[in-house]
């Protein structure tokens, strides 16, 4: 299969897969937590949190990327301490691409998980509490198993979104082949060179295939949620 793509193309695909995988995995716990809080808790500032989570969906990606640069860049408000204390540098590294992808994919992930949590009858959670389960156990033994397909659907959507992320990524970590050149960045780069169209087109097909696969998978898992919550 490696023969189908030039080393440069292959590098971009492999990097995109790696970035998407880590962005999905690292944001998933936060996604579940935020989705649970938004679905089940009432608190002051809930709308603010909701807005913050969804902001990357609405903002121009270049703005999100720039904000990430301001915050997590080497001289950024958080970035300088990450560098000083932990030696972690995100800007212009593939790890930064992970962060950018995670932030951009977060709203989609939270949305899918939140909908599945809202589909779980709170009365089942009450019943679990009367049987002696503390709130954490209720979540682990009742809520989580019931929303598992929704969580997977959210993760798949997040993965697909991360695969396609372009604007924030290129702003935050630039477009360095082999380091930060993800699939969309590579397509963009190929389109900038004369005669790069066929290469770009091959990558476009890969992007379409990944997105399509993810959508079908998440749709199918979404139906599994409904089946699971209402019983087989």
């Amino acid at each position: 299969m490696a023969d189908w793509f030039s080393p440069g193309e292959w590098q971009a695909i492999a990097l995109s897969l790696r970035v998407s995988f880590w962005s999905m995995l690292l944001s998933l716990p936060f996604g579940i937590l935020v989705a649970h809080v938004l679905a089940r808790r009432e608190f002051w500032g809930k709308q603010v949190l909701n807005g913050l989570v969804h902001l990357p969906l609405i903002l121009p990606p270049v703005v999100t990327g720039y904000l990430l640069l301001l915050t997590f860049g080497r001289k950024g408000s958080v970035g300088q301490y990450l560098d000083q204390w932990f030696g972690i540098v995100l800007a212009f590294k593939w790890t930064g691409a992970v962060l950018a992808a995670a932030v951009m994919a977060f709203p989609l992930m939270v949305r899918a998980i939140r909908l599945s949590i809202e589909a779980v009858d709170p009365k089942l959670e009450q019943a679990a509490a009367t049987l002696g389960a503390s709130p954490v156990w209720v979540f682990l033994t009742v809520t989580l198993p019931l929303i598992l397909p929704g969580v997977i659907a959210g993760a798949v959507l997040g993965f697909a979104k991360a695969m396609g992320e372009f604007g924030a990524t290129i702003t935050f970590v630039s477009n360095i082949p082999g380091q930060t050149q993800t699939l969309p960045s590579a397509i963009y780069a190929f389109l900038q060179v004369p005669g790069g169209d066929p290469q770009a087109f091959r990558l476009v097909l890969v992007a379409i295939a990944v997105a399509m696969l993810a959508l079908i998978l998440s749709e199918w898992l979404g139906r599994a949620v409904a089946r699971r919550v209402s019983g087989p």
């Binding site: 009450q126 019943a127 009367t130 049987l131 389960a133 709130p135 019931l146």
Partner: peptide
């Protein structure tokens, strides 16, 4: 609730579907 050592039988059963 979880420390009250109750048995609660609800009108709708509320069995865990999974």
């Amino acid at each position: 609730v979880h420390k009250r050592h109750l048995g609660y039988v609800f009108q709708e059963g509320r069995l865990f579907p999974h």
